[in-house]
Design a protein around this nucleic acid. Sequence first.
RNA 1: GCCAAGGUGGCAGAGUCCGGCCGAACGCAGCGGCCUGCAGAGCCGCCCACCGCCGGUUCAAAUCCGGCCCUUGGCUCCA
Length: 504
Amino acid sequence: MTLHVTNTLTGEKEPFEPQDPENVLLYYCGLTVSDPPHLGHARSWVHVDVMHRWLEHLGYDVRHVENFTDVNEKIVARIGEDDLGESESEVAETYIQRTIDDMRSLNLLRAEVYPRVSEHVPEVIDLVETLIEKGYAYESNGSVYFDVTRFEEYGKLSNQELDEIESQGDPDERTEKRHPADFALWKADGVDPDAIDEHSHEGVDHGDTPPEGLTWDSPWGEGRPGWHIECSAMSMTHLGETLDLHVGGRDLVFPHHENEIAQSEAATDQQFANYWLHCELFQMDDEKMSSSLGNFVTVDEAIDRWGTNVMRTFLTAGSYNSKQLYANETIAEAQERWDQLERAYEAAVDVLDSPQASAKATDESLRDEIDSAREAFATAMNDDFNTREAQSALLSVATAINRHLEAIGGDADGEGGYDYRGLRRAVETLEELGGVLGLSFRGETTGTATLAGDVVELVLDVREAERDVGNYERADELRDELEALGIEVQDTDEGATYRLPSGE
RNA sequence: GCCAAGGUGGCAGAGUCCGGCCGAACGCAGCGGCCUGCAGAGCCGCCCACCGCCGGUUCAAAUCCGGCCCUUGGCUCCA
């Protein structure tokens, strides 16, 4: 089965065929860097990252471009707040750095480039000029608007009729516009102080001298790029006129992506993107998580608390295009899934790297289960990146490992022994397919050469001595105390084993 | 009001495009058993679903068609 994706443009699940059979041009609508990234952003990032990884797994060379919108009145509104910075670009850089740090801690593959609006203003101006020349845009009081009535297919992405769209943009723009749904490509002058007020955090008062944003000279006078135009300018600059995949949040379908299509296709007469994929949003109780509602958990808080692997397991616990419930219970479940994978992985590595792993032992059912898990994983991912099903396939590898270890058990020195080739295949499968989900197994087993590990072993030796003399009360205390530190202790036939908390 | 997505067990979440293998996956929670000094982990088994409601098509529907109810998102900044 080949890869199929759900295309918002058609509403259908379609076979994915990039223009060039070896390359995929992927554009992801990145953030406006005016607030710290939250888990909602992380959810989309991780899903795009998984798409990227799966496409590479399928053999494509993925050219992934992701922008930072660093010119926006919301950024200007943050000037002077906390230690964010004293200018629009300083505030933007503060948040860009934070965003990049978060991306790294989520184990995201790097994009080919992360273009910023402030470095693409000449391209924006060129594009706006083209649109005016072709009659799709008009200047009004130093601002330039896109004329939606000239673009016949306007509304094709969000399925709306033009006369049902009431208006776009600030109220005071409306007098300058020919049609209420026309949207700004270029805005005259600097940032409107009212906009600063509107976007400032509560309690922040800039007084009589509101901060000012950047402006650029243009054929229409000093001004700033409109909100939507930058994505068209940047994606064309770095990926060309027609993208294979354009991905973004569901909340951007209208007006942002609709407007991108209009301005891009009007300018180039080419289809802007062949496949539009939209990531669904988090649900918190009965509303979405968002910056503007303030009901978010930041990425760094989440990573600190749960760790990268658990967060990625959580974020891929549903399909990218279905809503996900954000709740402690759903995260705890992800924690459990990840622990199962990691425990099985570590157990397999332990045995694999032991003399009990035999060159001749073969466990057909282990091998069969790995093969069918690999197939199930591929089928799931090819079916519109069904990450939940993919996780399920991974878990079945873990079960197969445990079953094999259970079956051989303490009898490894006897007839059978552990199936070296089977376990090696299992370990590689977890690494490879887990890697597609961006999960990384620690690759080392219990008893590592860390100081923490040495100390734990020391405590376990003491505990073992207590057990030998039947002092179970003290032994249990020691175990409880270790577990209070996050160290899992397990008594087995070969003595106690332990797992350090992730990150240690 | 208009546009879009969705309503599946106690929770979460696949399956719906291509009707039958769905008496509904995977996981969590719950219950038994194995193992264990105990616990955990693991293994084996079990419990819980008339798949929002009503009607239709069909030999056969969670899956197709029609109507209705409800939820969420978009129509203002938003992943």
